[in-house]
Design a protein around this nucleic acid. Structure first.
Lengths: 125, 125
DNA sequence: TTCCATCCTGGAGCGCGCTCCAGGTCAAGC
DNA sequence: GCTTGACCTGGAGCGCGCTCCAGGATGGAA
C-alpha cells in the first residue's frame, strides 16, 4: 500500500491542493497520513473517498451533508442503514434535478429552433 | 395589456421580490414600468423574459451571460445570430452537464445497491 | 551542501447570487 | 383622516465552496 503525494492526489482526484486541505480541515477527509516531516500522504482508500465526494458534489450534494455521511461511516457498520437512507434521499433529489434539467433543456432547444427559423429566413431573404 | 404587481410577478415567475429588484438593478431586466407613485408594473413581456431567465438559470447559465443575452436583444434584430450562437454554446454545455449528471447518478445508484445488499444481509442474519 | 520545487499552517479574501435591513412612501379599505 | 400592508431605495451582509497569501519547513537532485 504505497501512498500518494498531495500533487499526485490532486491530479488523480481532480480536486485542487487547496481543496484537499480544505476537505481535511472541515473533517470531510480524516486520518490522512503524514511523513515524518509533516507532509500529507494519501492512500488508495483516501482516493476512494475522494471519488465518492466527486460523485456527490457533481450531483449537487452540499458539503455539510457529505460531512454527515463521512461522520456516519467513521462511526462504524451500525450506521449503514442511515447512510443508505441519506444516499437514497439524495438520489431522489438528483432525479428531480435531472427531470428539471431535461425540461429546461427542451425549452432551450425550442428557443434555438426559433432562432434557426429566423436566421434561415434572413438567409433566404 | 394589463400589468402585474411585484407580488403577483414574484408568484408567477417564482423569483422573490428581492431577486426581481436585483435583476432590474444589474440591468438584466430593463424598462420595467412604474405607476405614478413609483411602484413597478410588470408586463406579459417581462414575464416572458423572466421565464427565459428561469430556464437559463435552471440550466446553470451565469448571470453575466444572461445580461449579455438581454443586452444583445435590446440592440435589435441584427444581433439574432449572435444570440442564437450564445444559446447554442450554452445548450452544448447543458448536454455535457446532463451526461455528467447521469454518469454520477449511476455511480450513486451502484453505491445504494451495495448498501441494499448489505442491509438485506443484516435482515437475513 | 546547496538549491529549489513542493509542501506546510493559519487566516484572510473572493465570486456568485441573492437576501436582508433601515427608513421612508404609497394607496386601498374602514 | 387613519390604518395597514405592500412597496420603494441604497447599501450592507450572507452562505457556499473554495482560493489565495505570507512566511516558513522539507526533501530529492546536482
Amino acid at each position: 500500500m504505497i501512498g500518494y503525494s498531495p500533487a499526485e492526489t490532486a491530479r488523480l482526484s481532480g480536486f485542487s491542493l487547496d481543496t484537499l486541505r480544505y476537505y481535511e480541515k472541515i473533517g470531510l477527509l480524516s486520518g490522512v497520513g503524514r511523513t515524518s516531516g509533516g507532509r500529507r500522504v494519501f492512500t488508495e482508500d483516501d482516493l476512494g473517498w475522494l471519488g465518492l465526494f466527486r460523485c456527490l458534489r457533481d450531483t449537487g450534494m452540499p458539503i455539510a451533508q457529505m460531512c454527515r455521511y463521512a461522520e456516519l461511516a467513521r462511526e462504524g457498520e451500525h450506521t449503514a442503514r442511515e447512510r443508505q437512507e441519506l444516499l437514497q434521499r439524495h438520489a431522489e433529489r438528483v432525479e428531480e434535478q435531472m427531470a428539471l434539467l431535461r425540461r429546461q433543456y427542451d425549452r432551450l432547444r425550442d428557443k434555438i429552433r426559433y432562432y434557426e427559423s429566423v436566421t434561415e429566413g434572413v438567409r433566404a431573404g
